[in-house]
Design a protein around this nucleic acid. Structure first.
Lengths: 340, 340
DNA sequence: GTGAAAGCGCTAACAA
DNA sequence: TTGTTAGCGCTTTCAC
C-alpha cells in the first residue's frame, strides 16, 4: 500500500501539537483556538490529508457500507434497481457492495456470510430462485442486522419488504387479454416457492376464474432456474398443442420477444392468432414488430425506496419493519391489441 | 449496531486465556497447544465468533476491497463485465464496491475521491463520455494506488489497460459491409476524445479508404452524451438524404434495432436497401427480423482479466503496467447478408 | 484551549 | 506454549 498516507499524528508532529488537538481542529470541534485550527487546517490541506476511513470504522463500529445481494447483476431489472440503490446510498454517504447469488442458494448463503463478516451496516436482498427456505437468513435476525428484502421478497420474514403488486397487475393483465377476446391464455411462470411468482400465477388464475374461463394445466409452464434456455421449447410446445393458446403471458420481455419470433416463423400472426404479453418494459419492446405489450415495473424506484427504508432502520435500530407496496402498470402496445 | 458481537477478548475471558493465544489458536498458528486450540475453537464456534474485518483492515492496512467505476450499471455490456469482475474478486476474497459516473466527469471525479477515501486496495475504471482530460486521475498515481482501465481506457495514462481491438474489428466489419455490396456506409460514432470511439471511427474510415470509397461527412454521426435519445432523428436524417446510405454501422444493438424499426416503417428493406450492423451482441439480436449482425465483445472476459491484472498489481506493487488486448468478433446474421 | 491516555478488535514481536 | 505489550489511526473522556 501507499505508506505515504498522511496521518493526524504526522500533522501533530509538524505543528508541535497533540493528536487530540489536531483531531478536534479537523472535526470542527468547539473548544479549539481559532489560530490553532487555522494552522492545522492549512497543513492538512497542504499535505492533502484524508482521514483514514478504516480507523473511523473501527472507532465508530460502522462501515457506512450496505451490502446488496441480487440474483444477477446483468439482469436489466436488477441493474435498474441497482441504479436507484446507488443513488440514494451515495447521496447519504454510503458505499454499496454488490454480490450475485447467480440464482444459487449456496452462493446466497455465502454472500450473506461474507457481507456480515465485512461488517456491512445493512443488507438489501432479492432472493435467488433456488431459495426455498430461510435458514440462512436467521443469522441476520440473530445479529440484528438491518435488512430489507426487495422484489423477490421473503414474505414470512419479520423484516422490511419492498415489492410490487404482482397479484393485482397479473390479474389486470389477464383481464386485459380476456377483454381482447383471448380465451386460451397460456402463462410462463417462475418457481412456486417464490412469493412473487406464486402471486403472479395466482392473479392469472383468479382472473380466468372470475371470467368463467377454465384453468388448463397444459397452458401453464413453470420453469426451473434458467428459463431463457427453454423458451424455444416452451413456445413450440404451446403452438403445437391440439388446441394452442390464443395468448401468452410471458415471464419477461426478452422471452416474449423470442416467443414472438418463433410464433411468426411458424406463420402465425400476432396478436390475431396469438397475443403476447411481456414483463419488465424494456426499451426494446418499442422496436419489435408488433410492438410488445408489457408490464412496467418501477425498478429504479424500488431501489431508492428499499434503500431509504434500510437507511432509516440503520439510523434507528428499533424502527419497525415496513412493508412497501409499489404499483406496476400495464403498457398496452400492438402485441395484445386485437380489438380496434 | 449489534453490540452482541463476540470478540477475541470475550473468548479469552471465558477461557482464562490471553487475547494473543486465542488469536493464534484461531488463525492456525503453529505454536499453540492442541488442547488449547481445540477449546478455543469450540467456544468460538459455539459463540459464532466472526473476526472483525474492520479491525483486520486497520491492522493490515488493506481492505480487500476493489472499487469499480463504470459509466452506467444498467448498460448490458458493463453489467456483463461486472459479472466477470465479481467472479474473480470474490474468488480471491475481495469485495467489490461499484460506483456509476453516469457519463459525468464530475461524478467520476467524486467517485474516485470517495473510493480512495474508503481505502480501496485498487481501482477498475471505464471512463465516462464526458471525460476529456485526466487531471482527476493524477491522485491515483500520486497515491500509488493500483488501477486498471478497461474498455473505455485512458490510453495516455501509465497504468494497466484492458481493451478490445476496436480499430481492427471496425475495419473488418466495414469491409464485410463493402463485401456485401454496400458503397454508402453510414456510421454512428461516439465522442472523439475517447480512445475507443476514435479507434472505431478510424477503422471504419481506413476500410473505406483502402477500398477506394469516399469518406462522406454526411454519413458520419458523432453524438453527445445521450445517444439513445436521438437515434430516431439520426435515422430519419440518414434515410431522407438525397443519397441515403445503403448500410449503417450503429453504435450498439439497441440503437441498431431501433434504426431497423424506423427503416422498415419507411418501407425500406433490410438488408437489401440498407444493411444494419449492431455492436455488443445482445441476445435480442437473434429475435428481431431480420436477425441482427453485430460485433461480439468479450464482456465477461474483460471483467475477469482486468480484475486478474489488478489483483496481481495489488499483491506486487512494483509489477509493471500491463496492456491487454482482447479480440472481438464479427457475428454475421441476416441484417447484413445481401449476397447469397 | 490543549494534552495524556484509553480504547475500538486484532496481530505480532518480544518475554517468560 | 503462553502472556505482555505495543500499535494500526482515530475519537473522546478526563485532567490540567
Amino acid at each position: 500500500m501507499k505508506h505515504t498516507a498522511v496521518t493526524i499524528k504526522e500533522i501533530a508532529r509538524l505543528l508541535g501539537l497533540s493528536k487530540s488537538t489536531v483531531s478536534r481542529a479537523l472535526t470542527e470541534h468547539a473548544d479549539v483556538n481559532d489560530e490553532t485550527r487555522r494552522k492545522v487546517q492549512t497543513v492538512a490541506r497542504q499535505l492533502q490529508y484524508e482521514p483514514n476511513k478504516i480507523a473511523l470504522n473501527l472507532k465508530q463500529q460502522c462501515t457506512r457500507t450496505i451490502g446488496v445481494i441480487v440474483p444477477e447483476t446483468a439482469n436489466v431489472f436488477f441493474a435498474k434497481v441497482m441504479g436507484g440503490i446507488q443513488e440514494v446510498a451515495n447521496e447519504a454517504g454510503y458505499n454499496v457492495v454488490v454480490c450475485q447469488s447467480n440464482e444459487s442458494y449456496a452462493a446466497e448463503k455465502e454472500n450473506i456470510r461474507s457481507l456480515i463478516a465485512n461488517q456491512v451496516d445493512g443488507l438489501l436482498i432479492s432472493v435467488s430462485q433456488e431459495t426455498d427456505n430461510t435458514d440462512h437468513f436467521d443469522i441476520i435476525l440473530k445479529k440484528n442486522i438491518p435488512v430489507v428484502f426487495f422484489d423477490r421478497i421473503c414474505e414470512a420474514f419479520p423484516t422490511s419488504q419492498v415489492f410490487t403488486n404482482n397479484y393485482e397487475i397479473s390479474f389486470e393483465a389477464t383481464e386485459h387479454l380476456i377483454a381482447q377476446g383471448c380465451r386460451r391464455i397460456a402463462a410462463i411462470s417462475g418457481p412456486q416457492h417464490l412469493y412473487h411468482s406464486r402471486n403472479r400465477l395466482q392473479g392469472y388464475k383468479d382472473a380466468l376464474r372470475k371470467n368463467g374461463l377454465p384453468i388448463i394445466d397444459n397452458y401453464i409452464i413453470t420453469h426451473g432456474n434458467h428459463p431463457e434456455k427453454n423458451i424455444e421449447q416452451y413456445t413450440k410446445h404451446l403452438i403445437t398443442l391440439a388446441e394452442p393458446p390464443d395468448a401468452i403471458f410471458a415471464i419477461n420481455d426478452i422471452a416474449a420477444i423470442e416467443m414472438m419470433h418463433i410464433i411468426k416463423q411458424h406463420g402465425l400472426k400476432i396478436p390475431v392468432d396469438i397475443a403476447v404479453l411481456g414483463f419488465n418494459n424494456e426499451t426494446i419492446g418499442n422496436f419489435v414488430e408488433p410492438s410488445l405489450s408489457t408490464i412496467h415495473l418501477p425498478a429504479s424506484e424500488m431501489g431508492t425506496i428499499a434503500t431509504q427504508v434500510l437507511l432509516s432502520q440503520i439510523s434507528d435500530t428499533n424502527c419497525k419493519p415496513q412493508k412497501k407496496l409499489l404499483k406496476s402498470s400495464l403498457v398496452v402496445r400492438e402485441s395484445t391489441s386485437r380489438v380496434r
